[in-house]
């Protein structure tokens, strides 16, 4: 089941995001050069006075076991999955806009909450 996530949405200039110090143990999804979704607790320090930092509850996600996840992704992605770990990637998975986090222990699958039920139907 995909669960609704509570994180921070951070819009700031790209240099500030590149140089940001993220809280220990947090997970940083770099959605675009100027756009981050952050999962984790703690203070964020950004060198951008115009940065927008808001609570973001619009995504849902779930953790998958790496082998099963890769099996599924390889049959439903038309693009090359990242080889290194950890890695963030986003694109069409099973025809829906999906964001993925890969590390040694899991593949974290995330999508807009509005698409979560549809994505679940398309998961193994």
């Amino acid at each position: 089941m995909l669960e609704r996530l509570e994180g921070l949405r951070i819009i700031a200039n790209a240099q500030a995001l590149d140089a940001a110090v993220w809280p220990n143990g947090s997970r940083v999804f770099r959605l675009a050069a100027d756009d981050v979704f952050l999962l984790g607790d703690g203070e964020v320090h950004l060198d951008d006075p115009h940065a927008i930092v808001e609570l973001e509850t619009g995504f849902s996600g779930m953790s998958m076991e790496p082998a099963a996840a890769l099996d599924w992704l390889e049959s439903t992605c038309e693009w090359e999955l990242p080889g290194q770990r950890p890695a963030f990637a986003q694109g069409a998975v099973a025809g829906l806009a999906v964001k993925l986090w890969f590390d040694e222990t899991e593949v974290f699958v995330m999508t807009a909450s509005a698409l979560a039920a549809e994505l679940e139907e398309r998961m193994p």
Binding site: A32, A33, E78, W79, E80, A89, Q90, G91, A92, A97
Partner: peptide, 18 residues
């Protein structure tokens, strides 16, 4: 094979993502 477009942030992706 779909037409592919390179996104400077995300990488090479099929046309249908755009």
């Amino acid at each position: 094979m779909s037409l592919r477009i390179t996104c400077p942030h995300c990488g090479v992706r099929p046309l249908e993502e755009y």
